[in-house]
Computed example of a mutant assay.
Amino acid sequence: MTRLQSEGKCIFCNETFSDKGIGRHLTTHLKKMEKEQPSSNQAFHLKVSAGEMFLHLLVDGNTKFREIDGFLRAIWLECCGHLSSFQIKKKRYNIRWGGGGDFGEKMSSKISTVLEKGMQIDYRYDFGSTTPLDIKVVNVYSLKVKKGVTLLSRNEPLPILCDICKQEPAVVICSICIYEEASMFCEDCAKKHEQTCPDFEDYAASDVVNSPRMGVCGYEGGTIDTERDGVWKK
Rank of each mutant, 00 (worst) to 15 (best):
H193G: 14
G101M: 05
K147Y: 06
M1N: 12
F12V: 08
K191E: 15
D207C: 03
Q120S: 14
N210M: 05
C162I: 08
P157E: 05
R24Q: 09
G61A: 07
K146T: 13
E105I: 04
G118M: 11
C13L: 02
D134M: 02
W232R: 01
D69I: 04
D69K: 07
F17D: 09
D202F: 07
S112D: 12
M33E: 08
S129Q: 02
T27V: 09
D163N: 13
I164T: 13
I173Q: 11
H193I: 14
G23R: 09
G104S: 07
F12H: 09
W232G: 04
G128Y: 11
E7D: 03
T150A: 07
I11L: 12
E105L: 00
P198T: 05
D69S: 14
Q120E: 15
L133G: 08
T223W: 00
E105R: 13
K146G: 10
Q120M: 07
K192P: 00
C197M: 07
L55F: 06
T226W: 02
H29V: 02
T27M: 06
D122K: 12
G104N: 05
F65E: 02
K47N: 06
G148D: 08
I68D: 01
T28S: 10
F65I: 06
K233G: 12
F54C: 05
E34M: 11
D229I: 00
K192T: 03
C165W: 06
I121F: 04
G99L: 03
H193Q: 14
N41Q: 14
L143H: 04
A190N: 12
C80R: 12
T27H: 08
Y179A: 04
G8R: 06
I173N: 04
I135P: 02
R228D: 12
R228C: 13
R92Q: 15
F71M: 04
S142C: 12
S211M: 02
R73M: 04
V216W: 05
L30N: 10
E15G: 01
R73N: 14
M107H: 08
D19S: 15
L77N: 10
G101I: 09
I68H: 01
Q120R: 11
N139L: 01
M33H: 07
A205I: 13
R154L: 02
R3Y: 13
L46W: 08
S18W: 12
G99K: 06
D122M: 04
G118N: 11
V171M: 08
P157W: 05
W97Y: 13
Y123V: 05
T16G: 03
